[in-house]
Amino acid sequence: MNKKSFFSKFASSAFMIIGLIFLIVYLLIPENAHPIFDILRNLSNALGSILIIGGIFEIVFKEKFIKEVTSSFVKTIFLKPASLENFKDEELEQINKSIQSRLLYGNRNNYYSNRILTMINDSFYEMAKGTHHNKDFNTFFQYYNSVLYVNERKENYVNIEYEIKYEIINNTKNKEEVEIDIFSKRFFPLSLSLADSCVTQELTYLNIKSDGKSMDYSKEIRDGKFKEQTLDKDDLDNIRIQEDVKRQIQEDKDGTFSPFKVKFKEKLIVEKKIKIVTLYDDISFSHIFKRPTLNYSIQYHDENVSVNTKDYLTLRFFSGLNKKSSDKIHPVLKGKVISLHVSDGLLLPGEGISIVALRDR
């Protein structure tokens, strides 16, 4: 018996003993005595009855009563969504953490479990609420579709037709307006960058629908408002090899080129087509998710591979949670085309795919 249980039993016994003393006093005082004694007699009767009943309740029914009342109260509060409206967000978050802690490892103090809970609450939970410190994570791709067609080689180069269509949903708390880059920074072999006449990326089509408002940029493309720019070496980060340079399609604003950004509050739909020129020996392509993605598909067609070569076209999907072995996510190879389709899943930032094409020499 622990100290708490001992003192509880002791208090219950004391209540009953004192109650019996009051009842004895009640019985000892005769009826119709002096008014003062009548008051004392009635008071002794009342107090004695209350203390005895309280002692019996404490010993026999208290624990069961508390369990039943607590269970009923908690179920009423937390199993009915309307009841949760009475709590502040901060209170609900603290309750949530307590419940998570209890479900995950009970009363054990486990550092590993603590780290998982910290990651859930500081990253995934904040991402779901739209309050993550990385603003990209507070938006997500409803879908992201891409098609790449690699034409037959021309000398040491290949031309790639790259089509992309995606829809981004704003998940920020209170639907705050967000701004995103439309064109990503891409790496190209250095030998291409030395040729001033060689444009490695050329925008051929761009249509954007921001919160239902459609914007076609055909005229701006014809007028040369979008051009490829080689970024300064000081801005180069995440370089794969020393011989690569980073380039980006940028917008011309009064003679000054800068990243093209778009703002929206609810959702953004982007369709774009880009022509890419790269070295024939540049046989790899990769895509890393910068924000959560629910539906993803990619189709890669390369005219320069031979279907008679072993592993001539391979696609690797790298993910911490979504595994190829699940038989739900796997590439499909048909002739010179390899594709991957992920439907109604959740691809996390940092996950992605890589494609390698073994081209004829």
Rank of each mutant, 00 (worst) to 15 (best):
L203F: 08
Q142W: 01
P259H: 13
L104Y: 10
S306I: 00
I116L: 12
A46Y: 09
P292D: 02
S325V: 02
D216Y: 05
D244M: 12
F187Y: 11
R115S: 14
Q229Y: 07
K246V: 10
F289N: 05
Y166L: 06
T200K: 06
S339W: 03
K209Q: 09
S113D: 12
S184M: 03
L103E: 08
N308Y: 10
F318T: 01
T293H: 01
E266I: 05
I29C: 09
V60D: 05
F317Y: 15
E176H: 06
K67G: 03
N156L: 08
V245Q: 07
R247W: 00
S113L: 08
V270Q: 02
K267E: 07
A33V: 11
Y157Q: 12
N174F: 10
E58A: 15
Y296A: 06
S8R: 14
N86R: 09
N110A: 09
T131Y: 11
I21C: 13
I288A: 12
F318E: 00
S8Y: 08
I36Q: 13
N42C: 02
I36A: 14
V60H: 05
D122E: 15
L40V: 15
L192D: 07
S101R: 15
P349M: 08
K275W: 00
I164A: 07
F15W: 12
M16T: 01
F140E: 09
R186G: 03
I164H: 06
S113M: 11
F10A: 14
L321D: 06
L313D: 01
S12E: 09
E63G: 06
S197K: 13
N134V: 13
I17Y: 09
S343L: 12
I298E: 01
D244T: 11
D223Q: 10
R115H: 09
S286N: 11
D38C: 10
K272G: 04
N138H: 10
N138F: 08
L231H: 03
